[in-house]
Amino acid sequence: MVELKNINKIYKTGEIETIALKNINLKINKGEFVSIMGPSGSGKSTLMHIIGLLDRPTSGTYILDGQDISKLNDDELARLRSKKIGFVFQAFFLLPRKNVLENVSLPSIYSEIPINIRKEKAIECLKASAFPLNFIYHYPNQLSGGMMQRVAIARALMNDPEIILADEPTGNLDTKTGEIVLHTFQKLNLEKGITIVLITHEEYVAEHAEKIIRIRDGEIINEEKVKNRKILYHNNENN
């Protein structure tokens, strides 16, 4: 699914060069649930931006679904983002003047989803993210943080992504609502087979994934399977 080979990212501010990522080699398989962990400033957000096609590496090869993205232009990257990637951010980034339904539908106006099935699709996504459906005409400022993040997850699901990139999705939430979000991710991962990449600095959050990739000072220092994975979602839950 995601294959990074010798990825470097260097920021230049005048004469000063900052190395954000150093020689990253990484492989994430389809259907995997991976955490990328590291302290702030370690380069984990930069890594997520590169995986999410929001940024380009300074050098190295990135192959997404067998496609080398270094040859693609901005529009093609936008199309790929729209088709394959869903983002969930720490700060939710909901548009304040749109209601829940409109916020969830936002990605569909940049994709091929026909207008007449958008609402249905948005409701389906909201259901999948465990959002209470009697709030779909509310505006973001009328919602709690946990609800806002569920709207954001629904939005990420709107275009049927193959991979969801979540940057500190529980960072602004208390433990309990955080767990609802993590539960949702596990469910999406298991039920729909969506690849999840969870970026966090908390060991506890990271342990909800199958695998933890630790990063420090722009380098991957360790990659390991989670021994005692925290399971919030069980396959038989629906029964």
């Binding site: 529009d75 983002r81 983002f87 980034f93 940049y110």
Partner: peptide, 16 residues
């Protein structure tokens, strides 16, 4: 600015 960033993240092309 933020909204434009978000729109781009969810698939808006520069032209859009």
């Amino acid at each position: 600015t933020k909204e434009i960033g978000l729109r781009k993240a969810v698939g808006a092309k520069n032209r859009d």
